[in-house]
Design a protein around this nucleic acid. Structure first.
Lengths: 337, 337
DNA sequence: TTGTAGGCGTTATCAC
DNA sequence: GTGATAACGCCTACAA
């Protein structure tokens, strides 16, 4: 069933039905009523493809997710769900696209097939081929994380540098003089993953300012790696009494390794970092940490994307989020300072 | 740029370009070459909306995910990623739709706007309004989990009843005479969530057959609930020496409660159930459990959906998966039998 | 306030 | 082997 059918049954022209639906032209109350009755009776809804073709817009966003090979973390998941939710608020749908691996066809379909009005790109690298592809395709996009030139594009990010700095200062204030950063994987760092790089720099810099000793280790995104990583820390730097981390997926392993080593938190060892609230609260004891506000980021990303779609020539805008660090029970004074 | 532009530059008609791309009509090698050169030079890709309108199919699936309010579990997450991957293999895209809450508009858009060729429905209830909606809309769909009448629709499911039975027998064989089922939440059970119901029935039935005592508790999907739930079990039935669970999200809490109660696994307490391999292996000690094969289910669901789209009047088919129970280290003989 | 008609970019049916 | 041309279903000037 199509708009013509509705028009026929309501005894009006197709354009009148169209205008009655869009409200872009006044329609008399009587006709509007008649049209709506027919629509309700037949359960008519406009064909999205036809509308997209005529309007030149699809009311759909593309969401490029990290490769499924590297298991999606809890935050990433929450982010996907939040984007869908935020898009739904504006009556938009979300088309998912895996990236990396051999999924270039999927990405290309989305970028070049005019299937979407804009794209949200997760887990961006400082130099990212997908960003260049989108730029050259002239498709509006917002990245989660920013590229090398912050003014060049639209993005939403978390101020990892600032948050990590504050974590380090917090630990220094508590008397810790030997701390370690449990970063994300070597591969991500090597690939130029911004948050990991900024965390590293801020960590070392702030430690220097505070006059304390800092070590950094990279750790793959899984619990087993967390165990191995923590054991390596104990072996290499037994004097370390506190850790800062941005690696959520490794946390359960760190928890287990702490327990196995007979270390009490925060009595013997302090732990903090940038960790989603849910995970921080599930930790034992609850972690002093900065939240990764997936919901806020998703809403902001969608807002920025809509703004950009509305005016593609606007100068890029962005949001750097600095969530508060919530004090819980995982950090304490260094023992026998 | 459109197909006409390509045609003009290649000196042929639009239809020839179309046929050169689809291969549905022979095209001379020379013209094909010329057309391809122009296409490569201009980076042309057909407009997806126009194609969908003309062909009457969108090459897109809808994936209806559980409400975001109840946090997505690890398996659900893996499943989403796997569906996208499986769809990509067939050059299809995936449109996400949240369900529940106030997301009916989103669901309706997808169902009735002809935005997708078919739908995959996660976390189905025994009586599910969305199933009826899709049926009445005449849109092909595959459910994960099955509805009351198994022959009525297309589905993929895990044989929870069979797996739970085998878990119970395994525990009985080990000498356990008092066991408990840690089910999913009260709400899900009340809503008629199939796996939870079938697990309950199979658990009680098999325990009766084996002549052992069985208790069942419902537990919300989160670690804190897992702690509370296990403590309740210890209080109400201190004689219980083994548990079967299908609640992955509660596992970390169960782990913590076991530890807090000073119970060694499997020395003092045995634990098994239906748990994704990754989680089972991350447990301490690794869990004897049946995997939830998210990847297989996703691929099967996509295959079934494509089959149904190809022949909408075909009689419904389905797949009941019975993954093996992998013996690891979390089950042992009952102490002091 | 309403109707007519052309166009959005493809696919597919005819005809040559 | 190739070209016109009519759908596909909607939106939106332009007319009345």
């Amino acid at each position: 069933m199509n708009i013509g059918e509705i028009a026929k049954r309501a005894g009006v022209s197709r354009s009148t039905v169209s205008y009655a639906l869009s409200g872009k032209r006044p329609v008399s109350a009587a006709t509007a009523q008649r049209i709506n009755d027919v629509i309700d009776e037949l359960g008519y809804r406009p064909n999205a493809s036809a509308r997209a073709l005529a309007e030149g817009r699809t009311r759909t966003f593309g969401l490029v997710i990290p490769p499924a090979s590297t298991r999606l973390t809890d935050v990433q998941l929450a982010f996907v769900a939040s984007v869908v939710e935020a898009a739904a608020v504006h009556d938009h749908d979300v088309l998912l696209s895996p990236s990396g691996g051999d999924h270039d066809r999927s990405f290309e379909r989305i970028v070049t097939g005019r299937r979407v009005d804009g794209v949200i790109l997760m887990e961006i690298l400082l130099q990212d081929p997908r960003v260049e592809r989108l730029t050259s395709a002239g498709l509006p996009f917002v990245t989660i994380g920013h590229v090398e030139d912050p003014a060049a594009s639209w993005w939403v990010d978390v101020d990892y540098a600032g948050l990590i700095s504050r974590c380090v200062r917090h630990l220094a204030d508590l008397g810790h003089s030997d701390v370690v950063l449990i970063n994300r994987s070597d591969e991500l760092v090597a690939a130029g993953y911004g948050p990991a790089l900024r965390a590293t720099t801020a960590f070392a810099g702030t430690a220097r300012e505070c006059g304390i000793t800092a070590h950094t280790v990279c750790c793959p995104d899984d619990p087993a790696a967390g165990v191995a990583c923590f054991e390596e820390i104990r072996t290499r730097w037994p004097e370390v009494t506190a850790a800062v981390t941005i690696n959520e997926a490794a946390l359960p392993g760190v928890q287990r390794a702490l327990h196995r080593a007979g270390l009490d938190v925060p009595q013997d060892f302090s732990l903090t970092g940038v960790i989603a609230d849910r995970l921080a609260e599930d930790f034992h004891p609850p972690l002093t940490a900065a939240d990764v506000p997936a919901g806020d980021m998703a809403r902001l990303a969608v807002d920025l994307l809509l703004e950009q779609i509305g005016d593609p020539s606007a100068t890029p805008r962005h949001s750097m989020l600095a969530p508060p660090i919530t004090l819980r029970s995982s950090t304490g004074a260094r023992r026998r300072a």
